[in-house]
Amino acid sequence: MNATFDLSAIIAVLATVMMITRASAVHALLYLTVSLLAVAMVFFVLGAPFAAALEVIIYAGAIMVLFVFVVMMLNIGDEAAALERAWLKPSIWIGPSVLALLLAIELGALAATGGLARPAGVVVDVQAVGIALVGPYMLAVEIASFLLLAALVAAFHLGRAVMKGA
């Protein structure tokens, strides 16, 4: 359904604009999370439910948690508590909440009407992706595993240096 796509796309763009223009990293993270959730909605409308689930789990979940941890580690100090108190004002969280609420209403409307009103042309489901992943794309999976191993080693090495320096 086109209206679902349009609304999700507008929310994604709006949230991204707000993210870029925020002064504080935590506020920007809130908007970035909303933007990623909106993109997940776009994927769902496009008939890519597996990509939508991965977007929520890995982007909006794991990567955002990494960012939040780093923001937390960088903000150690007395002024952080006062800042935290100022951040709990409604004017801070109302923007991301409204955008997220719009997405939730959209999802609820989809669920209430029994899925997409006009089903997406062709839904490429998990099975098709999985079969292609271990078939013609086996080499790409190996490359991805190399990349993840390299990132793991690098993050461990850099993290150990941080521990020693502390």
Binding site: Y59, L66, V70, L148, A151, A154, L158, V162
Partner: peptide, 28 residues
């Protein structure tokens, strides 16, 4: 209507995860 697009998305996702973990460690 092909699975290739989603597979490339998964690879981009892998790259993003690797990039952000190393990048944030460097920021720290």
């Amino acid at each position: 209507a092909a699975a290739d697009g989603q597979i490339m998305f998964i690879l981009v996702l892998t790259f993003a995860a690797a990039e952000v973990s190393v990048g944030l460690a460097l920021v720290l």
